[in-house]
Design a protein around this nucleic acid. Structure first.
Length: 340
DNA sequence: AAACAGTGCAACCGCTCTGAC
DNA sequence: TGTCAGAGCGGTTGCACTGTT
């Protein structure tokens, strides 16, 4: 069916709202309620499209709208919810009293998204951006082979992967590449570590919240669109709290090293090695902040100890804060459908 | 001081969903 | 069950503002 215009566009005003228009709309809604948006402009004496009136009201004029800069707690909530819900701005806004989906969306695109990118985190998947890692570090791995590269294709920039494959192909043809690799310094990555990174397939029964894994991982895939099943599971498995019996969890799981990685560690020449070492050294501190997901949905998340430490105002401080807050747990009893 | 670039945000566009008939 | 209008939603645009050269 064809899409009908929400209103007759001719003669209707567009662009910024004037204070007079705002007053008319506000007064009308205060008396009659929001009601039918198509007939509202005419009844309220506005030369505006009903849709425009609805957006103006819901995004700006509503009395419960909270204006001003987002707090750290709100930002934390947004990032955590986005990691679960994706770009479901209205669902995220429902957990942030006084904030609109449009406002959250704008804030995400103009602030948080850029910050995550600077930290080397993909703002869509909340996963590490391995395409930023030094390709030479990948190539120096003794575990490098065609199957490894194919498995990496999910994470790595396609162009970089293509280059790696070409190099590997050359290696097979004349062994020259292989001898060059052997002449390099011994990589920091220990044997099997590299493959462990790639093979992030933790049995679900290793998880405290295995029920979560079984119940929700499929739903999450919908929000992780281009992420393959295995990778999506891996991300959430690795963000779930391990029990004392979970010592089998590898120490170099990708998400944890990503989330704890400092942005500047990605920029130097041995970023991959450093990242791995950093992960190994910090895995014992694999802690989880209080999650908004474990708080009543009707109230904002409580301040946690980490939040109390980050009340600085610089971008760097926020970067550091974000790297910590990108760790969270999802309680067993969580009804994920509630978020959809 | 002027020109230009970058940034942030309100508003719009158009597709999708939902419920009434 | 199919059609339609209304509403919701995510993505995009345009412009004002600010910073830099």
């Amino acid at each position: 069916m064809g899409r009908s215009p929400c209103c007759d566009k001719s003669g209707l005003k567009k662009g910024p709202w004037t204070p007079e228009e705002d007053m008319k709309l506000t007064q009308y809604i205060q008396i009659h309620g929001p009601g039918n948006w198509r007939t509202l402009p005419k009844n309220a004496g506005l030369e505006r499209c009903g849709k425009s009136c609805r957006l103006r009201w819901t995004n700006y004029l509503r009395p419960d709208i909270k204006r001003g800069r987002f707090s750290f707690e709100e930002e934390e909530t947004i990032i955590q919810l986005h990691s679960v819900l994706g770009n479901k701005w209205s669902a995220i806004a429902a957990r942030l009293p006084g904030r609109t989906d449009n406002e959250i969306k704008n804030y995400w695109n103009t602030h948080i998204r850029k910050r995550l990118l600077r930290m080397g985190i993909d703002p869509v998947t909340h996963a590490p951006r391995l395409d930023l890692l030094d390709l030479s570090s990948l190539l120096s791995s003794p575990q490098l082979n065609l199957s490894s590269l194919i498995r990496l294709q999910t994470f790595v920039n396609p162009d970089a992967l293509r280059l790696a494959m070409n190099l590997l192909s050359s290696q097979n043809e004349n062994q020259l590449f292989n001898s060059q690799l052997q002449n390099q310094q011994a990589p920091v990555i220990q044997p099997n570590q590299f493959d462990n990174i790639i093979n992030q397939q933790i049995p679900s029964n290793d998880l405290t919240t295995s029920s979560f894994h079984n119940q929700y991982s499929q739903s999450l895939q919908g929000n992780m669109g281009h992420f393959p099943v295995g990778s999506t599971n891996s991300i959430f498995q690795n963000n779930l709290k391990p029990t004392t019996s979970d010592q089998s969890l590898p120490s170099t799981d990708i998400p944890s090293f990503c989330y704890q990685m400092k942005s500047d560690s990605l920029s130097d020449n041995s970023s991959f090695d450093q990242a791995l070492n950093y992960s190994s050294s910090t895995t014992n501190n694999f802690s989880f902040d209080n999650s908004v997901l474990s708080t009543p949905l009707s109230s904002p998340p409580p301040l946690n100890s980490a939040s109390g430490l980050i009340n600085g105002s610089t971008e760097d401080e926020r970067d550091s804060f974000c790297s910590n807050l990108l760790r969270f747990e999802i309680p067993e009893g969580l009804d994920f459908e509630d978020f959809i």
